[in-house]
Amino acid sequence: MMPSSEALLALILLSVLLSLTSHRLLTLIHIMAFQGIMVSLVPLFHEKHHTLAIGSILLLQVMILIKGFLIPGFMLAAVKKIKMRREVVPLISYHASLFIGLIFIVVSAFIADRIQGTLPGKQTVLIIITAITTLASGLFLLMSRHKAFTQVIGYLIMENGIYLFGTALAKQTHTQYIVEFGVLLDLLVGIMVMGIILTNINDTFDDVDTAYLGELKD
């Protein structure tokens, strides 16, 4: 794998850590857009894809368009509409979140080291580390934040991690764009439904804090 791809992965890791500490929603969305573009570019530098087919280049562009511009644009519009700027005090503080993010990196380095031997062909460990860290951080963000909006962003980051995993592991010849297709479908549809409910939460409660959603419990 080329060094440029490792730089790309390092940038993704950085953006993940940044997303764990940022409390302004606009910053979070910008980070999301940046991360989306970086993640879509990874297959380009991946050694397996040296011979890129027309189809995969097209898909790559669609990925960048959706992850880098369409979804962030949609979210920006939503933020403007619901007049919300920042996350309230989260369940787990920002410093602690950052620390947990670092722990994720260490743990995923350990896991990646263990599973590398079973993988076919030459693999760099870094892409697996990045994938696991992104996945775990997304899940963590989803669980530790109050605002429904941040939870959606957590879901998006998690989806990025899954996409990275898919590109790292699967050969294009065999999967026939299953990875790209699956992730795109998941994203588009998920965001659509979540967006609709999000605006409804906002209309009903004048806020998108899920702390209001606490009536149903045992």
């Binding site: 989803l142 939870q151 879901y155 899954i162 995993f165 998941d186 998920g190 979540m194 409910i197």
Partner: peptide, 28 residues
């Protein structure tokens, strides 16, 4: 109802996303 739907969509979406990862692993 809003709360129930939000939980439903959120939790099941995360679950389904993990199932997609499972599909990738089977392909691998």
């Amino acid at each position: 109802a809003l709360e129930a739907t939000w939980k439903y969509v959120m939790i099941c979406s995360v679950g389904i996303a993990l199932a997609l990862l499972g599909c990738f692993f089977v392909v691998l």
